[in-house]
Nucleic acid binder design. Structure first.
Length: 632
DNA sequence: CATGTCTGCCC
DNA sequence: ATTCTGC
DNA sequence: GCAGAATGGGCAGACATG
C-alpha cells in the first residue's frame, strides 16, 4: 500500500471527531489493504511503530527529530525549532519546511507502508557507536522521499504521537466492520442470499426463528458445533469454508463481535495479529486465540475516587460488598511462571526479570503450580527500615549493572493481588472472587518476599474506614476498592475498581516561567514553572513545573495574563515576572537534584488561582522542609 | 575517559 | 502518575 | 463511563562530544 493512501486517511481522521466516521475510515483501510500490509497498517494507524508486547524502541525523541529534519532538508536546526514553536507541532513544522523545499527538488522514490516499516525496524535495531547518526539518516531518508503531508505523519509516527484521536476502541470496531460487516448487515433474514460470506445464528434466535426461515438457512449452510458459551453465540453455520451469522438483533451481534475482537486483542496485545487472523481465519480463528505464557497482557487500571462513600457507590455489588486492598507505592508487576522459568513484566509490558532475581527465585519457591500468571505490586521494603520511598525502588528498575549489590541495598517484597492464568486456563473472564480465592489457595507466603496484598471484604463503611486508616498508618498510599463479581479487563480503566488516596495539603507558589504548549495547547502556555520563597534571602526558588488541573478556559486566561509578564524568551520557554500565584496540590515532596529549592513536587496540579496573593505570600522553603520532614 | 544530553519508562 | 474534554 | 491527549519528577543507560 502506498503511504500516501494512509496519509489521506490520517488527514480525514484528524479532521473529524465522529467515532462512527472514524471507524468507517479505518475499516476501509483494512479492507483495501493487501494482506501483507495488514500488520504494519494495524500499528501505523495508531501511530505505533511496533506491537506493545515486543520490547522494541526507536530511541528517537524531539531533539533527534530536529536533527533529522535539518539533515533531510538542509534547513538549520534553529530554523526548525522556530517553526516548531510557531506551529506547536513538529509534524506541522516539517510539513511547511518540506513544502518550501519541494519547489526546488524532485521527489525520489514513492513511500510505501513496507518501506516505512522497514526503516522503523532499522532504526530500532541500530545500536553502538554511530547509531544515532544512523538513525537520523534513516529518518532523513524517509523525510527526503516524502511529500509534505507524508513528512508530517512520518515525524509524528516516529515520535509515536499521531494526534489524530485513534485508539484501541476505534481500531477494534474497525476490524469488526472491515472483516465481519456481512454478519452485522444481516438484520433481515428473508430474501437474504447466502453468498458464501459469513453467517451464524444466535442461540435465542434459534428458538424463535420460523421453520421456514430455519430451513432456508439449512439448505444453504452446513451446521458445525462450536463451544461459544462466553459470548452467547451458540452455533456457527458454515458454508463454503466461511463463517456466517444470521440474526435480527443486529446491535447485539455487533457487540458480541466487538467482544470477540476485543478478547483477541486482550490476549495477544497485538492488533496486527488480530487483523491478520480476522482476515484469514475469521471469527473462529479469533476465538481460538488465548493467553500465552511469557507474553504479557495489559493490566487493568483503576479510576479515582474522592471518598469512601463514592468508592462504595462505584464498586459495591448489590449487597454493597466490596473488596478492599492496600495500595502499595511500588511497581505494578505481572509475573509469568512455567515450571522453573519465571519472567517479570511491568505495566507497560517491559521485562524486568533480570533486575529482580531474588523475586524470580522466591516465586519459584512460593508457587507449586506448573503454569501461572499472577499480578502484584513490587515494593521496596527493608525489614529493618520499613517501606522505602518509591524513588529508592526506582533505582532498580532499569538497572543493568551492580544488580547483586542493589538486592542488599534496596530489598523488595511483592504483594500479589490477582491471578490471571493457571495451568492452561485463562481466568480473565472469571470474577474477582474466584481469582482471589484461587490465588490464595496456590500461594505459599514467604515473609518479606512473596506475600498477598492486605485484603478485606466488607460492606461496612466503618470497617472500611479503619482498614483505610490502617493502610495510611502503615505508610501506604491508600487503598483500592474492587467489585468482587467483575471480570478482569486488560488495559481498561474500569469503574468497578477504584483507588482512594488522602487529599494532600496544598501549597501557594509563584509562577516564574512557562513553556509554550503543543497539540491542542499549541496557542497557550501549557506548562508552568513554580517557585517557593527563601525567606532569608528574599529570593524565589524553583520547585518544579505544573501542567495539569486547569480547564481550557483557565489555560487561556493564564496565558493572556502571563504574556504581558514575559521577561525573556528562549525557544519554547519563557521567563516571567513573578506576579501570578497559584494553589498547587501534590502527592509528595521529593528531594530534587534539578530545582533550586532542592525539592520537587510529585504529581503537581493546579487547584486554583490565588488572585489576592502576591509574591510575599507564597509558601516558604522553610515550610517545604518542614513538610518534607513530616512525610515519613 | 569524563561529562552532558537525550530517551524511555517507572510512578 | 493527574486532569480535562468530548463522544 | 470511558478513551484520548497533554502534561509532572526522577532514574539508568546509551551515545555523543570534547
Amino acid at each position: 500500500m502506498d503511504y500516501s493512501e494512509l496519509v489521506k486517511s490520517y488527514k480525514k481522521l484528524e479532521s473529524t471527531q465522529s467515532t462512527l466516521e472514524k471507524t468507517e475510515i479505518i475499516s476501509k483501510l483494512f479492507i483495501n489493504s493487501p494482506k501483507e500490509d495488514l500488520d504494519t497498517l494495524a500499528h501505523l494507524i495508531r501511530g505505533k511503530a511496533f506491537s506493545e508486547w515486543k520490547n522494541l524502541d526507536l530511541g528517537i525523541g524531539k531533539k533527534l527529530i530536529i536533527k533529522a529534519i535539518s539533515k533531510a532538508t538542509g534547513i538549520k536546526e534553529e530554523k526548525v525549532k522556530k517553526e516548531w514553536k510557531n506551529k506547536g507541532d513538529l509534524g506541522d513544522a516539517v510539513e511547511v519546511i518540506v513544502k518550501n523545499k519541494k519547489q526546488q527538488t524532485l521527489t525520489t522514490k514513492k513511500l510505501t507502508l513496507s518501506l516505512v516499516q522497514e526503516n522503523l525496524e532499522k532504526i530500532a535495531g541500530a545500536e553502538g557507536s554511530g547509531s544515532q547518526s544512523k538513525k537520523i539518516s534513516l529518518i532523513a531518508e524517509l523525510i527526503g522521499s516524502a511529500e509534505p503531508e507524508e513528512a508530517k505523519y512520518i515525524v509524528r509516527t516516529v515520535l509515536e504521537n499521531l494526534r489524530i484521536g485513534v485508539g484501541e476502541g476505534l481500531v477494534r470496531d474497525a476490524i469488526v466492520k472491515a472483516f465481519f460487516s456481512e454478519l452485522i448487515g444481516l438484520s433481515e433474514l428473508d430474501g437474504y442470499e447466502i453468498t458464501g460470506q459469513q453467517v451464524g445464528i444466535d442461540k435465542q434466535l434459534l428458538g424463535s426463528i420460523s421453520e421456514y426461515r430455519l430451513n432456508k438457512v439449512k439448505e444453504k449452510t452446513e451446521l458445525i458445533e462450536i463451544d461459544l458459551s462466553d459470548d452467547g453465540i451458540s452455533k456457527l453455520w458454515k458454508k463454503e469454508g466461511a463463517d456466517v451469522f444470521i440474526t435480527d438483533r443486529k446491535k447485539e451481534i455487533e457487540d458480541r463481535l466487538k467482544g470477540i475482537v476485543q478478547h483477541a486483542y486482550d490476549v495477544s496485545t497485538d492488533f496486527g495479529e488480530v487483523a491478520e487472523v480476522a482476515s484469514k481465519k475469521g471469527v473462529q480463528g479469533l476465538r481460538e486465540m488465548d493467553i500465552e505464557l511469557f507474553r504479557p497482557i495489559r493490566v487493568m487500571l483503576a479510576q479515582k475516587s474522592d471518598s469512601m462513600e463514592d468508592a462504595f457507590e462505584a464498586v459495591g455489588s448489590e449487597e454493597g460488598l466490596a473488596a478492599l486492598e492496600y495500595k502499595y507505592d511500588g511497581i505494578r508487576v505481572q509475573i509469568h511462571k512455567e515450571g522453573s522459568d519465571v519472567k517479570i513484566f511491568t505495566r507497560r509490558l517491559e521485562e524486568i526479570t533480570d533486575q529482580f532475581p531474588e523475586i524470580v527465585n522466591a516465586i519459584k519457591d512460593s508457587i507449586d503450580e506448573e503454569e501461572v500468571i499472577v499480578e502484584g505490586e513490587l515494593v521496596g521494603f527493608d525489614p529493618q527500615k520499613g517501606y522505602l520511598p518509591f524513588q529508592k525502588l526506582s533505582k532498580r528498575i532499569k538497572r543493568k549493572y551492580n544488580i547483586r549489590e542493589m538486592i542488599e541495598k534496596i530489598p523488595v517484597t511483592v504483594y500479589l493481588f490477582d491471578l490471571i492464568y493457571c495451568n492452561g486456563n485463562s481466568l480473565i473472564r472469571q470474577n474477582l472472587r474466584i481469582r482471589w480465592s484461587k490465588l490464595n489457595s496456590l500461594i505459599n507466603k514467604i515473609d518479606n518476599s512473596v506475600e498477598l496484598a492486605s485484603h478485606l471484604e466488607t460492606s461496612d463503611l466503618d470497617k472500611a474506614q479503619s482498614f483505610y486508616q490502617k493502610a495510611l498508618d502503615e505508610n501506604q498510599e491508600g487503598i483500592m476498592l474492587k467489585n468482587l463479581s467483575k471480570r478482569y479487563k486488560p488495559g481498561s480503566r474500569v469503574g468497578y475498581m477504584v483507588k482512594l488516596k488522602p487529599v494532600m495539603e496544598t501549597l501557594d507558589l509563584a509562577i516564574i516561567g512557562a513553556e509554550w504548549g503543543e497539540g491542542r495547547r499549541r496557542d497557550w502556555l501549557g506548562s508552568y514553572k513554580l517557585a517557593c520563597m527563601n525567606k532569608e534571602t528574599g529570593e524565589l526558588k524553583s520547585i518544579g513545573k505544573m501542567a495539569t488541573g486547569f480547564t481550557d478556559e483557565q489555560l487561556e486566561e493564564l496565558t493572556n495574563k502571563l504574556e504581558d509578564m514575559i521577561i525573556q524568551e528562549d525557544g519554547r520557554s519563557v521567563k516571567l515576572k513573578p506576579k501570578v500565584i497559584v494553589e498547587v496540590a501534590y502527592e509528595e515532596i521529593q528531594e530534587s537534584p534539578k530545582y533550586e529549592s532542592g525539592y520537587a513536587l510529585r504529581f503537581p496540579r493546579l487547584v486554583a488561582e490565588r488572585e489576592t496573593l502576591g509574591t510575599g505570600d507564597v509558601d516558604t522553603l522553610d515550610r517545604i522542609r518542614e513538610l518534607y520532614g513530616k512525610q515519613s
